[in-house]
Design a protein around this nucleic acid. Structure first.
Lengths: 208, 208, 208, 208
DNA sequence: GATGAATGAGTGTTCATTCAT
DNA sequence: CATGAATGAACACTCATTCAT
């Protein structure tokens, strides 16, 4: 089973598909980050990935489906971070603070790909948006934050005067709007400072 | 009968242009609110305004120009509100609180047109966005808020520990993100509650 | 009103559209006759008509709509012939005989355009055909023939033993199948002879 | 244990090819009957047959070749019926009548697969049709009918006034057009009645 | 024998823009 | 001022076919 030939074969047989799909998702991510969703045409994506024009449809069937997969990949990556934070935090407030900070950290360095999610979020604002993936996901995130706050009100780490749902909307809005501003405004913003303010803001408004 | 008719005609002649432009801007606003910027084609806009397919180009030359004008009209309207608040507020903190509340109030009622600005904001996230109008405007708003906070730190209404620029980014991000969430999430969000939370928590984080 | 300028103007203003639409319909008709519906792409049609690729969509919106219009034009032309025959025939049998003969006469000369209708008919055989225009039209024609036979049974020109609906299906099938055969079979078929046989045999089977 | 297994395997090895081909032809037949020739893509056919997307090309090389084979299979099946009728009929007229009735009987029940032939026939109407299989076949059928009529004029069962070739075209046209009408028209047609009319029609027009 | 990854041509459609009227 | 005919580029998507496995 360990013969190099078999390993070679197994890799070429099934992983070629994985390689291609990952390359296509990477290409889509960077193109969206640069030019937006509509300008990231399937032809450009295929060619930036080093393949042909038609490969995206061959693998994903539909542009909408490609976007869903890209979103899932992004969320799966972030979920690992959140799970780890949840396990190693003393209470709900600390988990919330660290999660928020981890999320904003991604946008601190002007990386090439991280904006893709924000751009997909921004493209989901019109009601007639084709994909409902963002909408569904956002609703889940909102519920998670609300649940976290409610839990913190039980474990005593969060002030019981806070309205969990309203606070969640405010907080998630902040978490989307801040990276949004960094993408829109041309002058460099000091995200490190903003992160500190956000931490302070949350502590002051949630502590009992 | 001739003279009044002529006056009427000449007046109509000049104002007909204004009427048409306003009708086109209204049509563009509602179409963007419904279908997004790309789907709001110039033909649809002209026809919804009750005119022909070609009128938008005739009046605005370019789609990008139409969007700029739409943005200007929106901002001019909101500037009146802000100016009035500034004049009638005791200090900077009160002005800030009232301005924030006035802004969020617009999104409380699920109106037909107000989302258009948010949709334009969301469409400006990709770096390769054609129009720079949003970008420039957002930078100005940011400066205004920063100046306001700095002024409040001088007049004593705002805590001097606050970093004015970082806080501005956080606050403006919140002001864009909250309406964004209401547009993306399908379930009805209680904006009235969110407004209260926002007020309370700005007070908590800015008061000396 | 008769000034040449006005006439010139009126012609250019409105009839340019008519000219273009007729040219597009003609181009579509000949392309369908040569290559079938699917191969008659909108680009080919526009260019054969002497215009651009996009004009078909500009005028007809949709390929399906273009086909509908083409069908209507064909039917309107044939209806004139049928109406004239109906008015100048002594009884229903004679009207039927002359109508059938007029229809088959079109396919006697291997003309360029007449096959287009048959090709559209043939393309409507799969149940998942997009356009329902042929289907609806065929049902109307069937009803007309049935009514004609029933009328002939009343006026005494047609045998009352004949089942009007079944005979109509047989007759209309014959009228579609015969031209179909001439299009499919390569060797030249003597349509004149076939027309004679059809006449004689309708008489034999319908006469009282 | 090895020998029977090998025999079993070898037999399966050969027949697996036949099984696959028949499954592919069945799948093609039903897909064509449902969606037409162009929409019956090779990938769909392979997958409906329970195999892979690429199997059709592997076995038939070309879509056109698949269609030829499908046509051959259809004709081979119908030839058995015709041969049997020819052997058990008293004279040419009876053979013709029974053959026609056997052919129409297939379309009486709204079966799933029988329309595939008619759809292929309809798709062969444009001159630029790639496959010539239908064209050649139709010419042979026409010759057969003509020969049958001529033979009937010799054996005395058919009127000598009839023009054999012209009558053949008329009859074959009828035999294609009637099923065609049942496929195009949505309202249910009473094929049993039509078959009776056809029988009567042929008797009245061919009997001496 | 059988699979399915990869290609690239082709289609209908949408759209901003130009320009003659 | 206003219309709308005409253009041509761009897009998502479907598909037959090739070929490595």
């Amino acid at each position: 089973m360990n013969s190099p030939v078999k390993v070679e074969t197994r890799r070429t047989q099934q992983e070629r598909k994985q390689d291609a799909e990952n390359a296509l998702l990477d290409a889509a991510e960077s193109l969206i980050a640069e030019q937006g969703i509509e300008q990231a045409s399937l032809a450009k994506i295929g060619e930036r990935a080093g393949y042909s024009r038609g490969l995206v449809n061959h693998h994903f069937g539909t542009k909408d489906n490609l976007l869903k997969r890209l979103l899932e990949r992004y969320q799966a990556g972030f979920r690992l971070v959140l799970d780890n934070i949840a396990k190693t935090s003393k209470n709900s407030l600390e988990a919330l603070l660290r999660s928020v900070d981890a999320y904003l950290e991604v946008y601190q360095v002007p990386g090439r790909k991280s904006p893709a999610f924000m751009i997909m979020w921004g493209a989901a604002l019109p009601p007639a948006t084709p994909s409902e993936a963002i909408s569904d996901s956002e609703e889940r995130v909102l519920s998670m934050i609300t649940a976290n706050i409610e839990h913190g009100q039980v474990d005593g780490s969060i002030n019981t005067n806070v309205d969990p749902e309203a606070y969640s909307v405010m907080l998630l809005g902040m978490l989307r709007g801040i990276p949004g501003e960094t993408l829109i405004v041309k002058k460099e913003l000091d995200i490190a400072q903003v992160r500190q303010e956000v931490q302070r803001f949350i502590k002051q408004t949630l502590k009992p």
